[in-house]
């Protein structure tokens, strides 16, 4: 049952998006997220949708994987929509029930807000689905490197993230095993009062913590035995390099940003598009 949980949702296929440098993908995702807040017209969102669609198509990841992230924030989307629907002040009245006023402007804002949220989630899914967690942390480390001059422990942060990601499946397996071992001794996790349910977690959590500490200690010993000493002068097994395709990606992003801003002003000139 617990095996079904997947964390680190990387989808392994070969595509131009997968091959991009992780740092480039991180930077482009960041730019994408920032520019998303400058889009204010439906035509703008339509353009974002086309661009995102093109990226998803070239990433060769099935669309349902991309959209899976939306399910988990559905509550937030619906909540935002309702709040915006009722609180936006507008001129053109659509519906009035008691003290609740719904205006055309409210509908437009509510729609735009939820579209923005969906695009945010799907956009960042592209990053995590096409980049292995290891490349992602390597990329983060490399981006944070300049900040190590002002005391940001970039290598240590990246190493902690890598180790955490590495141990998620291990600890999930361990939890599964411990749960089964206790179930074999008649432990019951599903029935009983809330208090009983909370108590039934003790036989899982105590062994799980002990094993996590044991593993951490073993790993620390193993790292020390291999003379690990942190980031200083450390060479890498996979040297990342920015290539031609990364520049192409940046060029495409630059065009994208230009169009986003053009559309923003086009909306001012031709109000019909709003």
């Amino acid at each position: 049952m617990i095996r079904d949980i997947t964390i680190g949702q990387y989808y392994p296929v070969a595509s131009p998006i997968h091959r991009l440098d992780a740092r480039v993908k991180l930077a482009i995702t960041f730019i994408y997220i920032v520019t998303l807040f400058f889009v204010d017209s439906f035509i703008g969102y339509f353009f974002v949708m086309l661009s995102l669609g093109a990226v998803i198509a070239s990433s060769k990841v099935p669309l349902r994987f991309m959209l899976r992230g939306i399910k988990s924030i559905m509550v937030i989307i619906v909540f935002t929509m309702i709040i915006n629907l009722f609180t936006t002040k507008g001129e053109t009245l659509l519906l009035e029930i008691g003290f609740l006023r719904i205006t055309w402007e409210g509908v437009a804002v509510a729609l735009k807000m939820s579209i923005r949220l969906v695009f945010l989630i799907v956009g960042s899914s592209v990053l995590t689905l096409t980049t292995t967690p290891i490349h992602l942390t390597d990329g983060i480390e490399s981006i944070l490197k300049p900040f190590s001059k002002i005391g940001v422990p970039s290598h240590e942060i990246a190493m902690m993230m890598t180790i955490a990601l590495r141990f998620i499946p291990t600890l999930l397996d361990e939890t599964d095993k411990i749960m089964k071992a206790q179930q074999a001794r008649g432990a019951d996790f599903d029935t009983g009062t809330l208090k009983e349910k909370a108590q039934s977690l003790i036989p899982i959590l105590v062994p799980l913590f002990i094993s996590a500490f044991r593993r951490a200690e073993e790993l620390a010993t193993a790292m020390e035995a291999r003379c690990y000493h942190g980031g200083e002068n450390r060479t890498r097994m996979h040297v990342v390099s920015i290539g031609r395709r990364d520049f192409v990606a940046f060029a495409v992003t630059a065009v994208y940003v230009c169009i986003i801003f053009l559309l923003r002003h086009a909306a001012e000139i031709v109000p019909f598009w709003i």
């Binding site: 089964k180 179930q183 036989p203 062994p207």
Partner: peptide
């Protein structure tokens, strides 16, 4: 539950279940 009482199963490294 009765089945699990009658069929006792000790996993590999069962000491990891002590709590």
């Amino acid at each position: 539950k009765e089945v699990r009482r009658r069929v006792g199963l000790a996993f590999q490294y069962p000491e990891y279940q002590l709590f």
